[in-house]
């Protein structure tokens, strides 16, 4: 069974945005954003995804990636 990987670090690097800055703009704590970045969460709310996409000016597909496990 495959899994969903969050590519938040890649998009943040492209936009040259720090973790603290993104956390402040999205309105979540940097601890939680760090968890999200390291893939230590099991679900993401649409509202959070919307806020991230709006801040980073990207599509959900740029952040989420499906990986097929072998």
């Amino acid at each position: 069974m495959g899994k969903i990987i969050l590519r938040l670090d890649r998009v943040m690097a492209d936009r040259k945005m720090s973790l603290n800055e993104l956390a402040e703009k999205v309105g979540i704590s940097n601890v939680n954003l760090s968890k999200m970045k390291n893939g230590k969460i099991s679900a993401i709310r649409f509202s959070t995804l919307e806020a991230i996409c709006e801040t980073l000016n990207c599509q959900p597909g740029d952040i989420l990636e499906y990986s097929k496990e072998e």
Partner: peptide, 11 residues
């Protein structure tokens, strides 16, 4: 408890 864990892991 299970629902709480799910809620805590959802951002």
């Amino acid at each position: 408890r299970v629902l709480q864990i799910q809620s805590d892991e959802t951002l």
